[in-house]
């Protein structure tokens, strides 16, 4: 394998060097620079769909997602500005208003990434009207529950099921605002024969959309570190 080149760049004015092919997000995290994310899960393919990790790049008029944009020599990145905060807050407002996130009565209250993100971005209210869609709760699986009311369509469950577990039980149906997470051929989860009941989807879900049965709210803590471990194991084998 050819040795990878080192690229030097600036993030928030700080001089940084890192390996060619790294994303801005990876490099920022290596250097403890915080960039908000919701759809990104370390070890899974980055999709750039939540748009919270958008950063400014000097010389480019466009905002680019840190999770999918690779670094290049001489790049200068701004991860935090008034403008970015304003956009991130509105994106979070749109996300929160899309479905029925009633935090007070959620299984993930207190350890939900969406809820925490509102706090991190100093959001004390939602800026757009709530949509209140009528959605289902699928509790047909023996061990897990899918509550569509609390799903932000980040696709982490779809990706982990496909990329790590290799089952591809979960996917997305529909388009636009009607997009929805499905199991197998839009069946009840309990009837989805491809599901291995591994529970990885539950662990990577950032909200209370996926939860474990029989656990109290305080026990619903999600553990995610296994993903990059499993991915590296797999890479070693291949």
């Amino acid at each position: 394998m050819a040795t990878k080149q080192v690229k030097t760049l600036k993030i928030d004015g700080m001089d940084i060097s890192s390996i060619q092919g790294s994303s801005i997000l990876e490099v920022a995290r290596e250097h403890d620079i915080y960039i908000p994310t919701l759809c990104f899960v370390e070890g899974l393919c980055a999709v750039g769909s939540c748009r919270l990790c958008l950063v400014e790049i000097e010389g480019s008029g466009k905002l680019l997602p840190a999770c999918t944009t690779q670094i290049y020599e001489g790049m200068s990145v701004i991860t935090n500005s008034e403008k970015l905060l304003k956009y991130r807050q509105m994106i979070l407002s749109l996300m929160f208003a899309e479905r029925n996130h009633t935090c007070a009565v959620c299984v993930s209250n207190g350890h939900c990434d969406l809820q925490a993100m509102l706090q991190i971005l100093h959001m004390d209210h939602i800026k757009v009207p709530y949509m209140f869609p009528r959605l289902k709760v699928d509790a047909t699986h023996d061990r897990f529950v899918m509550d569509h009311n609390r799903c932000i369509l980040c696709s982490a469950c779809v990706r982990v099921c496909d990329e790590i577990e290799g089952a591809h039980t979960k996917d997305i149906e529909g388009r636009g605002i009607k997009s929805n997470i499905i199991t197998d051929f839009a069946q009840n989860w309990g009837d989805a024969s491809s599901c291995t009941t591994c529970g990885k989807c539950v662990q990577v879900c950032p909200t209370g959309a996926l939860s474990e049965k029989g656990k109290a709210v305080s026990e619903q803590l999600k553990r995610r570190s296994f993903v990059s471990y499993l991915k590296s194991m797999r890479e070693d084998v291949l």
Partner: peptide, 10 residues
């Protein structure tokens, strides 16, 4: 809208 990203979908 395909529904992938939040700003366009919502």
């Amino acid at each position: 809208s395909c529904g992938k990203c939040v700003p366009c979908r919502v």
